[in-house]
Nucleic acid binder design. Structure first.
Lengths: 216, 216
DNA sequence: GACAGCATGTAATGAGTTACATGATTAA
DNA sequence: TTAATCATGTAACTCATTACATGCTGTC
């Protein structure tokens, strides 16, 4: 019965990986997904219930029915077969990278927009960055103080932290630069000065991301 | 008839925005999506056929049936109502940012992996970055030479270019750092030296992304 | 005269989201 | 004792992908 897996997805393995850190109730899984995977593999909470059932029906996890008051509560635990499946998955071909970036899309299509519409898009990007920083800063302190719940995994987690925290800074910087440009616009029409600054912006980016060249 | 829109999605508006630059056959739309939106709003090609029909049935675009040999070929053009819809959409609440990052996911769950598995994940991230740079570099030259097909939109496009090119550099840098760390590992177990370097990595990231502090 | 690759789609399936529902706990 | 919020799930729907199919064009 176990092993006849009806096509497990990356999301399934993401849940399975969470269970690798110890047994969890569904609610704990939901919260853990929010903490750990929100920024690298975002999924709706409701998905988790379905995936957990799938793990059980594939023999990769066990479900223990419990009670809290009159409500049922399910606790999941990974099985030995589950660990093996996790190892196999990790040994296979990695998934790629996909970015969906609403603000960039709106700017690219922004010819019919007003400058304030594009500023609103930039604001969304900035808020996203600020939220990541607000999550990341206290997290960093926990690691540095040695009191994070997964402290013994910090050699791995520091690698993802490195990416995410710096990406947040990256997004904020872009929002700063872009907002400064858009604030100079009265409309979204082309123009000679805009064109000149645009080419300089492209040069700056290609020149290895150095800060804008200052004419001394 | 037109205007009774059955819930248009962001993808629909992305296509509509493409049509804003001039009428296109379905095939041209597919290619344009690949060039312009691949990295900020990725969608399967087959999606485009469906969305284009939706635009027509909503009155936002017109379809002209043509022939190439005995096969039919459809050319789409935006309507005035479509332009208005585009403006309304741009004036509304922007979509957010969502990143799906397979390599990061695998590293986070990498305790059951071998170091070479994680190196394979890093390689995927690096290849993604290299591909973006390979697309971006000639594109930059086109803009700088003033010969890009949408040259008159460079004031907008430079803003998205700024983001994407630098993000590619960002990804490559992360891949370099991470690969250097992983090459020192014999396994994915915790360890005192790994722990020390991990904390330093976190400090470096929080210290505003400065390059690793060198003990002089 | 066939093979490769470009051009143009359709059908089936599934992954994922949104909306809803309801029980338990805590604070006012 | 109400309201808020935490905890736990289900149902309906749809967006999106994968796989397939077929015609056209140039070239060897």
């Amino acid at each position: 019965m176990a092993g006849v897996n009806p096509r497990l997805t990356t999301t399934t393995y993401a849940i399975l990986g969470q269970l690798g850190w110890g047994e969890q109730t569904t609610y704990e899984l939901v919260k853990a997904m929010g903490r750990n995977l929100r920024f690298i593999w975002p999924r709706a909470e409701s998905r988790i219930y379905e995936e957990a059932r799938r793990l059980v029906s594939s023999g990769l996890a066990t479900a223990r029915e419990g009670r809290s008051g009159r409500r049922r509560r399910t606790t999941y635990a990974i099985t030995e077969e589950g660990r093996q499946a996790l190892r196999n998955w990790l040994a296979g071909e990695p998934e790629g990278i996909a970015l969906e970036h609403g603000p960039l899309l709106r700017i690219l299509l922004g010819r019919q927009a007003r400058p304030e519409d594009l500023l609103a898009a930039v604001r969304v990007a900035r808020e996203h960055a600020e939220k990541m920083l607000a999550v990341g800063a206290p997290l960093a302190q926990e690691y540095l103080d040695g009191r994070h719940a997964q402290q013994q995994e910090v050699h791995l987690r520091s690698l993802t932290f490195d990416y995410l925290y710096r990406w947040a800074l990256f997004n904020r910087d872009w929002a700063d630069r872009t907002e400064a440009e858009l604030r100079r616009w009265r409309d979204t029409e082309p123009g000679a000065a805009k064109h000149r600054r645009a080419l300089q912006r492209i040069r700056d980016a290609v020149n290895h991301g150095l800060p804008p060249a200052r004419a001394a």
